[in-house]
Simulated scan of single mutants.
Amino acid sequence: MLESCLAAVQAGPAVIGLPAVDRAIVVLVDGLGAEALSARAGHARALSGALTSKSAIVAGFPSTTATAITSLTTGLRAGAHGIVGYSALDPARDAVVNQLTGWGPHLDPLDWQRHPTLFERAAADGIAAVAIGPERYRESGFTQVALRGAKYLAGATIDDRVSRAIEWLSTSGPGIAYLYVPELDVAAHAKGWTSGEWTAALEVADSALRRLADSLGPREGMLVTADHGIVDVPHHAHILVDTAPELLEGVRHLAGEPRCLQLHLEPEANASVVFDRWAESESGHSWVATRQEVIDAGWYGPVDDTVRPRMGDIFIAARKSVAYYDSRTAGSSRNMVGQHGSLSQTELRVPLLRFGAFAA
Rank of each mutant, 00 (worst) to 15 (best):
A88V: 04
A88K: 00
A88P: 10
A88I: 06
L89A: 05
L89M: 05
L89E: 05
D90C: 14
D90W: 05
P91A: 00
P91C: 02
P91I: 00
P91D: 00
P91H: 01
A92R: 05
A92T: 04
A92E: 09
A92C: 02
A92I: 04
A92Y: 04
A92F: 10
R93D: 02
R93V: 00
R93F: 10
R93W: 02
D94A: 07
D94T: 02
A95S: 03
A95I: 00
A95Y: 07
A95G: 07
A95F: 09
V96H: 03
V96L: 11
V96G: 09
V97S: 09
V97M: 13
V97Y: 04
V97P: 15
N98M: 15
Q99T: 13
Q99M: 15
Q99L: 14
L100T: 11
L100A: 09
L100Y: 13
T101C: 06
T101V: 11
T101W: 13
G102F: 10
G102T: 11
G102Q: 09
W103A: 01
W103G: 01
G104A: 11
G104D: 15
G104R: 11
G104K: 12
G104Q: 10
P105G: 06
P105T: 07
P105R: 13
H106Y: 12
H106Q: 10
L107E: 07
L107R: 06
L107M: 08
L107Q: 11
L107G: 03
D108K: 04
D108Y: 14
D108E: 14
D108R: 12
D108S: 02
D108V: 07
D108C: 01
P109Y: 05
P109V: 06
P109N: 03
L110N: 12
L110V: 00
L110M: 11
L110P: 07
L110Q: 05
L110K: 02
D111V: 08
D111L: 05
D111T: 09
D111M: 07
D111G: 15
W112M: 07
W112C: 02
W112N: 01
W112I: 00
Q113E: 03
R114V: 06
R114W: 06
R114Y: 09
R114L: 05
R114G: 08
H115W: 02
H115T: 14
H115C: 15
H115S: 12
H115D: 11
H115P: 14
H115R: 10
P116Q: 08
P116Y: 09
P116F: 06
P116K: 01
P116A: 07
T117E: 03
T117R: 15
T117L: 12
T117I: 12
L118A: 11
L118Q: 05
L118E: 04
L118M: 15
